[in-house]
Nucleic acid binder design. Structure first.
Length: 917
RNA sequence: GGACGUGUAGCUCAGCGGGAGAGCACCUCGUUGACAUCGAGGGGGUCACAGGUUCAAUCCCUGUCACGUCCA
């Protein structure tokens, strides 16, 4: 017999191992099976499973298990992302803690070797955590973004985009992270609102005729000012445009220029222009050909372009010193408090600086066009659809994508530099770039470029050349030091993981993938990039559907964060409640476009749901419910069995439709209601007399039906609660006829015909359920003691209702705790009537009850019916309603009115009788 | 400033043109042969506010207020 409860702790690892060993996670190789594929949003290799992963991966697993059971060749391709900055950060921190050398002291090769070493040791953490969740990924296909195959794809993409002029090198302002000393993309910048100040500085006019006041939140940048700008229409400054001011501290004359950029309404209307350290100023500088003076080094310390006393100062130190200097010079006009947004690095948390550097850019606007079109035309659809707006908004305003990063961990940019043939070129050692997939190819290209008389080799440490008689005799190429943005490689994920650019069978079969399930926070970072790169390189969308899952928050709606201490660790929750309970909770709460506020209580409730199912199965087992050979659900006779068969069909159809459309919450809620409120609460209770009764045929039929329903339940619930269902499947394997499938995970999804629904059985069981429910309400409302067992009196009822109530007397007796069902002409004095579906029933319990309480109950009921009658009558009295509303709505209201009037009359009569008692 | 989303029972949310729902919490009763991780019953809501469309509005439209998120 089944144990009293399911023990997830011991069962889950055992079941998972069995699944994995069975090979069932891999897609079937049946060539007739329709392919269905999902690629995992690769978690950072540094990561450990947080609740957001748990949600995202649960939904993917629900979908993949569903499609697998539907007989498709279901592939869920897993893997991890090398996560450039994040991983480098983690390893650097660990090296520091262990008292090791810093990255720079170590050197590139040794450091990268360390990271690989670290990855080998702890990189598998998150993957194993996914196993604990029950994720049925095909681990034989697991990929890592730095795998050789994926790296080859990255190089090929880079080279091809370069050939197409969609990747280019450019000197412009980037968001510079001084902590990591790397460029980061716009998306990695987080605007934080902080308290700050506007410092109003006076710049004296060169000719001594006055001053012009500018305000800034970043005083230190004045060291790099190369102009002051005013609006051309600003009358106040018309006279000074074209003159110069003498920049204090620096003592440099800079022009006053007219440009549309300054807003005359703001501040003094004049703004300082620092082209090398502000995005707006950069544009102004370009328009006016202003010099661009960079005043920072890579650490955002002041460099040698500033006066000597500032050199080497940290930017914030420099700020203080600049302000002090202005004060001393008597040029500090005002300090104004303000709240403003300041860009921060999302990883480092430090203030990022606009910084003038050479970087590699992708012409994202070109790649975006087909990606926009694909969504416009429905080749890829978003669920929920409104996320398409977000996608369009960003894609239509897309900026060049800075893809180079000054890091060591990642895909090194496949570009090699050599000297220009022009001896006067700037950056003379690296003025010529050769972009190629391998060093050999770069060398070949370089040989062609420099000619047959020049020896060419790669030497990262000693770039340069040797000359004989003024011409090159030997050239040494140096590979670009930088690596690519992590998202550059994740953007290839749907096809690089399947072996592209090789024409693999996986690529042919599983690309494009079907559904991508991910969070809205990476629509720009990832979804958009996959769309762009996927379309460009494969000519097809990478996925046909994108399901955007919600964000998980704590029970009070706050974003979970370690610093707030409100993090719910999914693994602890799995330990405490089992993976199924967590999965069910996340699935039930995954309502679209909404935050999920997770509470332990909710998980506990769904753990209880599992226990409920477990015990219902136990009940069935104890009562000999075994599968019957050749059982045909359409052929059952007992109304109760016909009813549950119909309900099972309805549920199966609803769940199938819901899962088809990513309606995860509907799926979970529908199953919960069916299993608990229909199967357990009513079917099992109503079946008890049949299972213990003398009618052997009815008993056998009920046993077989219960076993059949349970098998369907296990299948339907399996995608959401795989462990407990698989365990029940295994443990009930020996009950009755053998099943076609020994393993539930790969069993066939139920496909039941709608003809299994029997309206007559529905009506019959509905009447019994309503009778019991109403009767209980009367009993308990009047505090009739449990020991009291009056008969149930049927006073007025339609013939078919009489038949049903008569036939189910034993059932009603048991569940309503009455002695039996009796048919009488009129309600005896002191009996308590109630109305069910137009039938008048009564319980003769006068001696047990408080007359006043009963009077109160009836009065209340009558009043509520009166309200309903008034409302409905008013509606029916409206000629427009009769004329314009659909006939069935009018009819429904007529019936409602008639029912309410009849019920009210009956209860009023009862109330009148009660007055005389 | 722009975009999107959300305001429904004490809490978390579902419903989204025709009788206000669930889970939890709360109150009462209950250990009857699956289950106290349980069963039965009950209380509790001007569906944010104001207009409009409609025979009919929690649901559609407009505006207001509040909250959230993203982009400037």
């Amino acid at each position: 017999m089944l144990d009293k409860t399911f023990d997830p702790k011991t069962a889950e690892p055992r079941l998972y191992q069995a699944w994995e060993a069975s090979g069932g996670f891999a897609p079937t190789d049946d060539p007739n099976a329709e392919p269905f594929s999902i690629v995992i949003p690769p978690p950072n290799v540094t990561g450990s499973l947080h609740i957001g992963h748990a949600l995202n991966n649960t939904l993917q697993d629900v979908l993949i298990r569903f499609e697998r059971m539907r007989g498709k060749a279901a592939l869920w391709l897993p893997g991890t992302d090398h996560a450039g900055i994040a991983t480098q950060m983690v390893v650097e921190r660990q090296l520091a803690q262990a008292g090791n050398q810093s990255r720079r002291d170590m050197g590139r090769d040794d450091f990268v070797a360390k990271v690989w070493e670290w990855k080998a040791q702890s990189g598998g953490t998150i993957v194993n955590q996914l196993r604990r969740l029950g994720a049925s990924c095909d681990w034989s296909r697991e990929r890592f973004t730095l795998d050789e195959g994926l790296s080859a794809a990255v190089r090929k993409v880079f080279v091809q985009l370069h050939k197409e002029k969609l990747i280019y090198r450019d000197k412009r302002l980037v968001n510079w992270d001084p902590h990591f000393q790397t460029a980061i993309s716009d998306l990695e910048v987080e605007a934080r609102e902080v308290d700050g100040h506007y410092w109003h500085f006076a710049y004296p006019l060169e000719d001594g005729s006055g001053e012009i006041v500018v305000a800034t939140t970043r005083p230190e940048t004045m060291l790099g000012d190369t102009a002051v700008a005013v609006h051309p229409d600003d009358e106040r400054y018309k006279a000074v445009v074209g003159k110069a001011v003498r920049l204090p501290i620096v003592n440099r004359p800079i022009p006053i220029i007219a440009d549309e950029y300054p807003d005359p309404e703001k501040g003094s209307g004049a703004v300082k222009i620092t082209p090398a350290h502000d995005f707006n100023d950069f544009a102004v500088g370009k328009r006016h050909s202003l010099p661009m003076i960079n005043i920072f080094d890579d650490f955002a310390r002041i460099n040698d372009n500033a006066p000597p006393e500032y050199r080497g100062l940290d930017r914030f130190e420099a700020r203080k010193k600049v302000i002090a200097a202005f004060e001393e010079l008597g040029l500090l006009r005002e300090i104004e408090k303000t709240r403003h947004t300041v860009p921060h690095g999302d990883r480092s948390g430090v203030v990022v600086e606009p910084y003038l550097t050479d970087q590699w850019y992708v012409a994202a606007d070109v790649l975006a066009k087909p990606a926009i079109k694909a969504v416009e035309e429905g080749d890829t659809v978003f669920v929920p659809k409104n996320w398409e707006k977000t996608y369009f908004e960003w894609m239509r305003n897309i900026q060049p994508w800075c893809v180079s990063r000054q890091l060591w961990w990642g895909h090194r940019i496949p570009a090699w530099y050599g000297p220009s043939l022009d001896p006067e070129a700037k950056d003379k050692h690296t003025a010529k770039v050769f972009v190629a997939e391998t060093a050999e190819e770069a060398l070949d290209e370089a040989r062609r470029f420099y000619g047959p008389d020049v020896a060419v080799e790669v030497d990262d440490n000693f770039p340069g050349w040797e000359k004989v008689n003024g011409v090159f005799s030997k050239v040494r190429l140096k590979q670009d030091e930088d690596v690519l943005d992590t998202w550059f490689s994740s953007g290839l994920w749907p096809f690089s993981t399947m072996g592209w650019p090789e024409k693999t069978s996986d690529l042919a079969r599983f690309y494009p993938t079907h559904t991508l399930i991910t969070g809205f926070d990476i629509i720009f970072f990832w979804v958009a990039r996959m769309m762009m790169q996927g379309l460009h390189f494969t000519g097809e969308v990478p996925f046909k559907r994108v399901f955007i899952n919600a964000l998980v928050r704590d029970a009070s709606g706050a974003k979970m964060s370690k610093s707030k201490g409100n993090v719910l660790d999914p693994l602890e929750l799995v330990d405490e409640f089992g993976a199924d309970a967590l999965r069910f909770t996340l699935t039930a709460m995954s309502g679209q476009a909404r935050d999920i506020k997770l509470s332990r209580q909710r998980i506990e409730g769904y753990r209880n749901f599992g226990t409920k199912l477990w015990n219902a199965s136990r009940f069935c087992q104890v009562n000999g419910c075994a599968r019957a050979e050749g059982f045909d659900p359409a052929a059952v006779k007992a109304p109760l069995n016909r009813w549950i068969v119909g309900e099972t069909q309805r549920t199966a159809a609803a769940v199938t439709a819901a899962l088809d459309g990513c309606g995860f919450d509907e799926t979970a809620n529908g199953l919960y209601r069916f299993i608990w409120n229909q199967f357990c609460d009513w079917y099992v209770e109503l079946a008890k007399p049949l299972l213990t009764g003398a009618d052997e045929a009815a008993k056998a039929e009920t046993q077989a039906t219960a076993a059949w329903v349970l098998d369907v339940i296990l299948k339907l619930l399996h995608p959401v609660m795989p462990f407990i269902t698989e365990e029940l499947w295994q443990q009930t394997a020996d009950l009755g006829a053998a099943r076609a499938e020994r393993q539930l995970m790969t069993a066939r999804w139920p496909d039941l015909p709608a003809s299994l629904v029997d309206a007559a059985a529905d009506a019959e069981i509905g009447l019994i359920i309503d009778t019991i429910t109403e009767g209980r309400s009367v009993r308990q409302g009047l505090n009739v003691p449990l020991s009291a067992q009056p008969p149930l009196l049927v006073i007025e009822a339609r013939p078919e209702q009489r038949a049903v109530l008569g036939a189910s007397a034993a059932l009603v007796a048991r569940l309503l705790r009455v002695s039996g069902v009796e048919f009488v002409e009129a309600a005896p004095a002191g009996s308590i009537p109630f109305v069910v579906d137009g039938a008048t029933l009564a319980l003769p319990v006068a001696e047990f009850i408080d007359i006043a309480a009963e009077r109160a109950r009836l009065t209340k009921e009558v009043a509520s019916l009166a309200g309903e009658i008034e409302k409905t009558a008013k509606k029916l009295g409206n000629a427009d309603f009769i004329a314009r509303a659909p006939e069935e709505v009018v009819e429904e209201n007529r019936e409602r009115l008639a029912d309410a009037q009849a019920a009210k009359a009956k209860l009023e009569a009862a109330l009148a009788r009660l007055q005389t008692v």
